[in-house]
């Protein structure tokens, strides 16, 4: 967990705290999507074998919950440093150098790509909304726009957390002090 050390400008610290807090809270809420996911899948099997009456909705519900979980959870994973990097050389770099590399990756790689993905996915969501698109995976045919809305929403959450990560990286690059240490997440 993030250990915010002392000695940095209070305004920046406030922004970081606010954003990290926001991502922690939203992440906690989003993580509960696993519960209906588990229940839907398990209920489907139970309904099939115990009552011989499989559901019409489990298939759609399953991929919609799974898709939403990992996309919306990406911002929290970013916050916790869970996105994989190769530490062939990384572990040997100084904190300052790590800060520079991250600052550049956020500014050049992260923000432009996600802003583009946000804009495109927003259009696609809007189109699905306009034609009232439904799923054609099963006869249940739920409307698709809420699911398609997940993509721009995930981009937005990632962009918000990205601001906090960028500030932390710039701070690392300039002062050589790590604002928070991220542990490896298991795979």
């Amino acid at each position: 967990m993030a250990e915010i050390t002392g000695g940095q400008p209070p305004a920046l610290l406030a922004i970081i705290r606010m954003i990290d807090g926001f991502t922690d809270r939203t992440g906690t809420i989003i993580s509960w999507l696993s519960v209906p996911l588990v229940l839907a899948v398990a209920y489907e099997v139970g309904a099939r074998y115990l009552f011989n009456a499989p559901t019409i909705w489990a298939y759609d519900a399953t991929y919609m919950l799974y898709g939403s979980l990992f996309m919306l959870g990406a911002a929290y994973a970013l916050h916790k440093g869970a996105h994989i990097r190769t530490d062939f050389f990384w572990e040997k770099f100084s904190i300052r150098r790590k800060g520079w590399i991250d600052t550049i990756s956020y500014l050049v790689f992260f923000f432009p790509s996600l802003i583009m993905l946000f804009l495109i996915s927003w259009n696609e969501f809007h189109y699905a909304w306009l034609i009232n698109e439904t799923s054609d995976q099963t006869p249940w045919r739920p409307v698709l726009w809420p699911f398609k809305f997940v993509v721009p929403l995930a981009c937005l959450l990632l962009l918000v957390q990205g601001v906090s990560e960028l500030i932390k990286s710039i701070y690392m690059a300039r002062t050589g002090v790590e604002l928070e240490h991220k542990e490896k997440v298991e795979i």
Binding site: G27, I30, W32, L33, L69, F70, Y76, A77, V185
Partner: peptide, 14 residues
């Protein structure tokens, strides 16, 4: 739940 989300996000976003 939180660990599940973080680990799956990492693998699946990749």
């Amino acid at each position: 739940l939180i660990s599940t989300m973080a680990t799956s996000s990492m693998v699946l976003l990749l």
